[in-house]
Amino acid sequence: MTEPTLQVEILRYRPETDQDPAFQTYTVPYRDDWVVLDALNHIKDNIDRTLSYRWSCHMAVCGSCGMMINGEPKLSCHAFLRDYYPNKIRVEPLNNFPIERDLVTVTDDFMEKLESVKPYVIPKQERAVDEGPHLQTPAQLNTFKQYTMCINCLLCYAACPQYGLTPDFVGPAALALAHRYNLDTRDAGREQRQEIAASNEGVWDCTFVGECSQVCPKSVDPAAAIQQTKIASTIDWYKALLNPWGKR
């Protein structure tokens, strides 16, 4: 009995030899408990050692194996072959990012944007260790908990046409994390984050396509975070207009 197989078409780009990326097709064994990442590992181990891609945990936690799978941004460890079999699977690097090599993208732009929104608790006053922990109720935690689930996998950036059209756009994950810290009762850094989040390149480049939330493997819902930031920033703007002498 012959083992069932499946064709995987991978966009290859080797900067030292290739002018443009091009597809290369591999035939891999089909197993119904395999994900696309297993197929890639099979190719790397048995067929073509030159194939480059990022991965680490194989369990949708590390956020490093995001790819375009049949045109949709997905974690390759989360995309089962059985959902595509017997059809061919097309694997490309994440949209909207420069390709470093094969399926590996350059993510520096996101890293800079993430840093720019100060995604950490900025307390009003530093707390000494002997003052004890800063308490927070479960209700307070739940206002922002979903936004803490972000694994920086960048599927939302690959799904966002506005990021593709306007590379300066701060983008979904970074804005969702800014919102996450703004909602945190231990935090007093909203004004600093608003410098970026409420700028033209911040929430205002978003047109609520909503795809970021659709493709998010962790149900973070960046589109909701951005929408709420737009409303809060608009209220700030009118408050400042009505009370120009008040504190900003």
């Binding site: 780009y13 900067p15 030292e16 443009d20 990326p21 045109g71 949709e72 949209n95 909207n96 420069p98 390709i99 470093e100 350059v106 046409p161 593709g164 059209l165 047109t207 396509v209 909503g210 795809e211 659709q214």
Partner: peptide
């Protein structure tokens, strides 16, 4: 080894590439 990152251009017809993008465009229209 020198780097040579390759940036793919977003096609103007991106909103036809996927059903959800197309319904977004219908909403915008």
């Amino acid at each position: 080894m020198s780097r040579k990152p390759y940036l793919r251009k977003m096609p103007k017809s991106w909103w036809l590439a996927q059903r959800r993008y197309t319904s977004y465009m219908a909403r915008e229209m």
